[in-house]
Design a protein around this nucleic acid. Sequence first.
DNA 1: TTGGATTTTTAGCACGTTCCAATTCCAGCG
DNA 2: CGCTGGAATTGGAACGTGCTAAAAATCCAA
Lengths: 353, 353
Amino acid sequence: MNNATRGEMEVREGRTTIVDVARRAGVSKSTVSLVLGGSSLVAETTRERVSDAMTELGYIYHRGAATLRGAKSGVIGMVINDLSNPFYVELAIGIEQACQGGAYIPFLANTAENAIRQQQVIRSMREHGAAGLVLAPAMGSSASELKPLLAGLPVVQVMRRLPGLRASFVAPENREGARKATAHLIAVGHARVAFVGGVSAMLVREERLAGYRLALEEAGISLDPSLVIETTTNYSGGGTAVPQLLNIHEPATAALCFNDVVAIGLTRALMEASVSVGVDFDVIGFDDIEEARHTRPALSSVAVNPRDLGSRAAQLLMRHLASGDFEPEAVLCPTTLAVRKSCRAASPYERVD
Amino acid sequence: MNNATRGEMEVREGRTTIVDVARRAGVSKSTVSLVLGGSSLVAETTRERVSDAMTELGYIYHRGAATLRGAKSGVIGMVINDLSNPFYVELAIGIEQACQGGAYIPFLANTAENAIRQQQVIRSMREHGAAGLVLAPAMGSSASELKPLLAGLPVVQVMRRLPGLRASFVAPENREGARKATAHLIAVGHARVAFVGGVSAMLVREERLAGYRLALEEAGISLDPSLVIETTTNYSGGGTAVPQLLNIHEPATAALCFNDVVAIGLTRALMEASVSVGVDFDVIGFDDIEEARHTRPALSSVAVNPRDLGSRAAQLLMRHLASGDFEPEAVLCPTTLAVRKSCRAASPYERVD
DNA sequence: TTGGATTTTTAGCACGTTCCAATTCCAGCG
DNA sequence: CGCTGGAATTGGAACGTGCTAAAAATCCAA
């Protein structure tokens, strides 16, 4: 058996290439390339012969070799700050869904709120030729450290905006959502409404707090700084606020919380202190996570719809990619107030369940 | 201004390459390559000069071009069946953590239990040169459809095993966990213990059911088929089981559930039917998700520790990659029984909170 | 059959990197 | 001064794919 005939049978050492397929199908590699590109220049019978050869040999397209020639990779990177937070998981799923059927496949990486890791991950995505990025920036990361890494790459920021970074931005209407919720609490009769959760360094909190202030102002209620309470943003954080809400001269009778997790923590602590939430004290959260529907009493919340947010971010990115125009754009997504048992209802916000 | 001098100043059109860096640093491209590889063959001063040139030009390594020469990409793919399930998110985080500091960066893709999408995603990962895969197979996918796609690629399956696929496998000790939990219910005095949730097609359920059977057998209790109840695996599924548990000749007094979500649904439905869980009726779930700690009464559960599972899967994959030996291996992770308020406690399982 | 128009296929180069062998450099030695 | 040998650097040849210009094949009407 000589080399020539063995060449036909032999399973080639390395990866099967376009040339192997071409040999098997009895055409040139260029024809195979045309088939891969779905060109109409190739005859139906030839196309089939080539396709068969590909499946027979288990051919796998080599994107690295393609990007070498300047082809776009078809990958968009999702760089997410905290996957242990269900909110951001929903966001990621929204991005993914928007990519369905489109020309892009999304790959997800978690930075776990770690700026160093965020750099690694972005670098790695670029090295692999990602066409664009949806970025939910990690806490403590700055525009200056990311600028050189992101140069020339279309980026859409979600939820958090890095001041100084020239890139598109998609976020919920934090201010308007907080205003609506606070106004609702005032409308059902509360005069002492608190704002609970988060620390002052957080940009998102500033926006929500601004909405809270605006609603008070509109109702002619002057802001009492002792009713704005900073806490850690977890279950226990909500609990720690209880004494500051109740053990004061004029106790608060309602609270808008920075997010649902804080609100749930607050609710539990109030119930344990024999304050009946939804009757003696009204609570509204923010984000409307899945759990809000399942706690007792069910938590009212400003619904942000993270899937929608993710989906819009992805769509914006794909628009940038399709047009080649990376001019930054800002998209604000409307919020809705979901009123449940944890606060009183009144028109136009009736209970949703 | 002639071309030669302009060449120095000009910002090159496309991507900055290793050659641009070499020119800037006044060395050959080979030297730059050596610096990139961290070779000890290059003098310290030269290395610095090259590094400076790289940052000045904003050079980004082109992995595609590298893999062309046979270099490994340093990427491992996590193909996960359902990211809207917190359990699998934890699993993914475990994989990620195990990769920290290692030579590999994990990229995550969600298949949403969709076999077609799973194929696309795996194909895409291979096209980008993933060195290996951690795969949590989508429901309804089969070994035969994946075999050609996975040929030659080291793969570690987690949680679910595709019969017929020659690949490593990492899973919790489902059988032993279910046995322990059932034995505990029997030990605290129950004679009528039910198994609730899932449908018979699910392999994982079969394993857990086997452990349940084994515990009954060990206690000399004969299996009552009417106490093995199939339901959908969601909150409402647990609720539908209540009549079948209570409206029979000898009602069940305890239940081991297929997973925590079913168990929580069952608990709610029982409480609404005025059956006090943890007093009149004992419930144990499976997986020990975060929510188990937060529902009232807190849910007892067989803790699977998904992070550990993910981390072991990643470690196994990296061992395969390092050794080049892809001989399949099976790893079973021990489970622990976390006893909380939803069932009675007894030595050696005292309440954990 | 012929000439031109149209369809189909081909050969060859470019891309950014790594590997290999070859070359230069330099200090130390006889 | 030439020689040696190790350290440092270099040039060139791949690698697998996409694109382009051009060759080849086919078709059609006269």
